[in-house]
Each structure stands twice: as structure tokens, then as C-alpha cells.
Write a protein that binds this DNA or RNA. Structure first.
Length: 326
DNA sequence: TCTGGGGTCCTAGGACCC
DNA sequence: TCTGGGGTCCTAGGACCC
């Protein structure tokens, strides 16, 4: 639609593979400074630099050094926030964007914090902001003035406590390297809504293959399989099933997904279809064998994964998905 | 600020167990 | 079969984040 309205538009497709490569390079630079690196996303991480006193003058000097190395080796801008807690460091890095460093000194950090709008707190989105507004809150300072039970009453136990702590500058969370993934999922929003069981099941089969590949590459298997469906009116439903033995093969994922699809009783065409695995376990752990599982099929799945690793996701595809293409 | 993909965490209710 | 407390696990949906 945008191209129709604006024919000279330049459309730049995303290059997720490239982003992952660059991300790995950036994280390697982080780890050359300290092993205590907690990744938040492809382009963001917490680094605990408390152990670097012998090598660097100050945490700010570490931050500057990291920026210099990223610029020199990768040609990329980077923003660094330096502070005494994760939360404040994150706020500082926001202030440093797009290509700078900012430091929140421990002395005076509360004054800085209390002047900020409540939306600067992590976890405060539109819904929570609405709840806070009803209490007359505008700034983080307003939250700090509120009794804890009031916050808990309005926002629930977890959110109430968290905001109460953060507003007081309390954030004892440590930088945790090696956090393991808790779920892996694939989903797609279709250009044209999927109508009819055949189309939806074909899409589910594609998802089962993609999910299986990602699980196997990570060496993980899931005990819970979740199906996600979004209708054209944006209503979004999920159905999940937890089983005794974790699965990572596309046949199991497809079978369970199909069962969940049946339970959903589709009422409209499908705008988005998703399939995910959670309650993840290491795939090398002893696992329950399904009634119909056989060593032959395991070998087939291993071979399929191998072909995909070498030649790409589209190198091998179920015949069922080729039927309409002549 | 009209909706892509991949995640995390929380809540509430129900099943089940001791 | 009922009563009570406490705990875990599962499911579905929602808020939020990058």
C-alpha cells in the first residue's frame, strides 16, 4: 500500500543474519573487557566492570574504551550508560543515545531519578501508566512518595513492589551472565489471511520445521508446546500443552500443534500463526520416547537439520508444501 | 503510534497432593 | 464425604521490552 501511494519509496529488507553476525562481534568486544556480560537483546548488554579497577581508572574510562574499540573495529556508534545499578545504567544509556556516554554519579542519583516521568521506569507502559495516573502520579518522585501498600493495591504484588523499590533507587539485581532461554518460538503474519484448515495446517508444518531447526541448533527440547492464532480483528488466542517428554522434532511439534489447532475450533481466517516451545530442557538429557518414535525417524530429522545447516532453511521442504507449485 | 517477530514476567483460576 | 491450610503445576491472557 505504501509503494502504491509512494512509488519512489525505497524498501530496505531486514537482514537478520547480518545483525546476528555483528551482534556476535560486539559481544566479543564486551567479553574482552569482562566475562560478566548479560545480554538483553541483539544490541544491548549489562557489563559488571567492578572487577576492572586495576586496569582502568574508573568505570567511565571503561565505557569510553569500549566505545573506542567498537568504533575502531566495527565502525559502529555505541552508547554507554554508567551507574551503580542496572536500572540507573539503563537510564543513563538512554540519555547517551545515539552515540555518547553518560554517567549518573551515586551522589545525587535520587534527585536525578525523581525528576523523571514515571514512564522512564522499566515495566511502565500504557496500562500501568493509566493505573498510576489514577493515583495522581506523574514523576518517579511521585511514586517514591506513595506508600507501598497503595502501589501494591493498584498494580498488583509484583509490579507494586518493583516500582516502589526502583523509585527509591533500590535495585539489587546482579549482572547475570549465561542466562538460558526460557522459550523459543516462531510466528508469521501473512500478507493474505489463511482461510481453511488445509492452508493453516500447511503453515503449521512450515513452523514445525523452523521451530525444530532452532531447537536442535540450540540443543534444546520443550515440554510445553504453544500454538498462537491471531484473527483479522486482532483477537489473539493461545493453546498450549505440556507433555511428559520434551520434544524437538518437527513431527512431534506438528502433531501437537495440529491437536491444539483442533481444540481452538477456528472461527475466522488466520492473520498470524505461531508455534513455540517452553519448559526447555537440554536435548541430551534422557527423554521419554513416544509410542510412535523410532530411531529411523530420529536419523531422518538429524539429516534434515544437517542439510538445513549447510544449505539453508529452504534447501529441504516437505512435499506437502510443494503440491501447489507444480 | 494501527498492530512484525521474538522474547520475559505476572496473574488468576483450577487440578491435584499432603 | 466434609473441613482447612499450604504447596506445586498447568493454562490462558495480558503487559511490556527490544
Amino acid at each position: 500500500m505504501a509503494l502504491k501511494a509512494c512509488p519512489q519509496l525505497r524498501v530496505v529488507p531486514p537482514a537478520h543474519g547480518r545483525y546476528s553476525e555483528v551482534s556476535a562481534d560486539v559481544f566479543a568486544i564486551f567479553r574482552s573487557f569482562t566475562p560478566v556480560v548479560e545480554g538483553l537483546s541483539l544490541d544491548e548488554a549489562f557489563l559488571d566492570v567492578a572487577g576492572l579497577r586495576l586496569h582502568h581508572e574508573s568505570p567511565v574510562a571503561v565505557g569510553e574504551a569500549i566505545r573506542v574499540v567498537i568504533r575502531a573495529e566495527l565502525g559502529l556508534p555505541a552508547s554507554v550508560g554508567v551507574a551503580s545499578t542496572k536500572f540507573l545504567a539503563k537510564l543513563a544509556s538512554e540519555a547517551a543515545k545515539p552515540d555518547g556516554l553518560s554517567h549518573i554519579p551515586t551522589i545525587g542519583q535520587l534527585d536525578f531519578l525523581h525528576a523523571l516521568p514515571a514512564t522512564a521506569l522499566p515495566g511502565v507502559g500504557p496500562a500501568t501508566l493509566a493505573g498510576l495516573s489514577r493515583l495522581g502520579v506523574e514523576t518517579i518522585g511521585d511514586i517514591a512518595d506513595l506508600p507501598r501498600p497503595t502501589l501494591v493495591g493498584a498494580l498488583g504484588q509484583a509490579m507494586g513492589r518493583q516500582l516502589s523499590d526502583l523509585a527509591a533507587g533500590i535495585d539489587p539485581r546482579r549482572v547475570e551472565p549465561d542466562i538460558e532461554a526460557k522459550s523459543i518460538s516462531v510466528e508469521e503474519t501473512y500478507d493474505n489471511d489463511l482461510e481453511g484448515t488445509d492452508l493453516v495446517e500447511a503453515a503449521l508444518l512450515v513452523h514445525a520445521h523452523r521451530l525444530s531447526s532452532r531447537l536442535r541448533r540450540s540443543g534444546l527440547a520443550g515440554r510445553t508446546v504453544t500454538l498462537k492464532v491471531r484473527y483479522p480483528d486482532f483477537e489473539t488466542l493461545t493453546r498450549s500443552r505440556t507433555i511428559d517428554g520434551a520434544v524437538d522434532g518437527w513431527r512431534d511439534l506438528f502433531r501437537i500443534g495440529t491437536e491444539l489447532l483442533g481444540e481452538l475450533r477456528l472461527a475466522q481466517p488466520v492473520r498470524l500463526l505461531g508455534l513455540g516451545a517452553s519448559s526447555l530442557e537440554s536435548a541430551s538429557q534422557p527423554r521419554q520416547l513416544g509410542i510412535d518414535s523410532s530411531a529411523d525417524w530420529d536419523r531422518v530429522e538429524d539429516a534434515v537439520s544437517g542439510v538445513r545447516d549447510r544449505f539453508g532453511e529452504s534447501a529441504i521442504t516437505p512435499a506437502r508444501l510443494l503440491e501447489d507449485r507444480g
